[in-house]
Design a protein around this nucleic acid. Structure first.
Lengths: 230, 230
DNA sequence: TCGAAATGAGAGCACTGCTCTCGATCTGTT
DNA sequence: AACAGATCGAGAGCAGTGCTCTCATTTCGA
């Protein structure tokens, strides 16, 4: 054991677990999920590389923690921004812009949630599903309000076949939306995520779009039109 | 040198380079970009781990090759499917379904192109841009046909500011589309990629959507409505 | 024919996740 | 208070990675 570093053994388990989470979040924000290294974390915390395994079972477990935290961080941001907004359209816009802002502020966390899956890692649905569905849940609730205001759309057999099972998910219990609207809601969700990914991952190249923010505004208009208009 | 493996030195450089590309493509398809290992490739080819560096400068260079190949593979598939299709709407649908089918058949290659960027790797635009814009170029050409058939949409200052520079890219030389339609085209593109990513990366969970194919059909309808309708 | 270029092998460096052992410390019970 | 058992940290070690360097051999061109 090291002769200096006095406080090491004084720190208790809870404090160390909290520090591990903090260091992991910081490294994720700086290096991305692929660059996350348990050894590097241990080094920074002046722990041996083996000692960190007393607190974290594996790199995958750490990733799960970070995914859950990221989902919660995103959902917290969205909820804070949406709380005071009323009306389907305004709420939809608020959700979209909140997601957009969060993604730009946390690109590596966004990539962890909505980018290509980490190879070899399979997220345990039991832990990641509840926080992962919080945001889309808000979007679906907004659509639910829309559905009650309006007459039921003309039934579409294709839509029923395609998305019948979506609203059966336990996370959506109590939310009633006709399948036609569910399909449009999912499309608007995919449009928002596609637009955000395109911007965050710079898929169009660094300077192709002159004003990405303005383009996202237009995109939100179109996404809203997808669920509102016919 | 190894006493067995007779043909090793007989194979000339061109043949070895071709074999390296073939092995790399196969490993990419099986393990994904993150799992791509030069050492594993060398092992399979019965080469020492250092010898492979006579043919490949670095892992990043290999990735660039694979990205270019994947873009070309996708664009070839799209062009083959679209060649015989006429009319803006049908062409748009053909492009969308072709991309969808290619992505499902080549999930790891799709992730390499449209997933989160490989950490630490920066694609050399000079090599990846031309093949990377082939598909979206076809989509924009379809929109260009649409633009000439119709009267110019009411000018939107926001759209002009947002996407003025997009069509200035050298890859789009000669294609004339008003900015309002460019914005709608990009939105439809992002919607398609968002929907495909959601399906390929299983972002909704494994069994949430009962019939992903049917949902994608509906999504294509909506994406087409984005560019056609008002 | 002879020298230079090309090529492959092997060792080595720094890094990763993870396991095992061993000693030291801390803690709960008798 | 003393002892036993749980807890914890360190260090070595294994298998893997990208990449570099040296050295011997083969090949090829002048």
């Amino acid at each position: 054991m090291s002769i200096d570093a006095p406080g090491i053994r004084a720190r208790n388990r809870a404090a160390l677990e909290a520090e591990i989470k903090e260091v992991a979040s910081r490294h994720l924000a700086r290096d991305g999920a692929a660059g996350l290294s348990l050894r590097a974390m241990a080094r920074e915390m002046k722990l041996s590389s083996s000692a960190i395994y007393r607190y974290v079972a594996s790199r995958d477990e750490l990733l799960t923690m970070l995914i859950v935290d990221a989902y919660d961080s995103l959902a917290d941001a969205v909820e804070a921004d949406v709380a005071s907004v009323t009306g389907t359209g305004p709420r939809f816009r608020a959700i979209a812009h909140s997601m957009h802002a969060w993604a730009l502020a946390h690109p590596h966390e966004y990539a962890l949630l909505y980018g290509s899956p980490v190879p070899g890692y399979h997220a345990p649905a039991q832990q990641t599903n509840p926080p992962g569905t919080r945001v889309v849940h808000h979007l679906m609730e907004a659509l639910s309000a829309l559905a009650t205001e309006r007459s039921r759309p003309t039934p579409d057999a294709r839509a029923h076949v395609a998305v019948a099972s979506v609203m059966d998910e336990p996370e959506f219990a109590g939310v009633e939306i006709p399948p036609e609207l569910v399909a449009r809601g999912l499309a608007s969700w995919n449009l928002l995520l596609g637009a955000i990914s395109s911007e965050v991952f710079e898929q169009m190249g660094p300077d192709t779009v002159s004003d990405p923010g303005a383009l996202f505004d237009l995109t939100v208009d179109l996404a809203l039109g997808l669920v509102m208009g016919d």
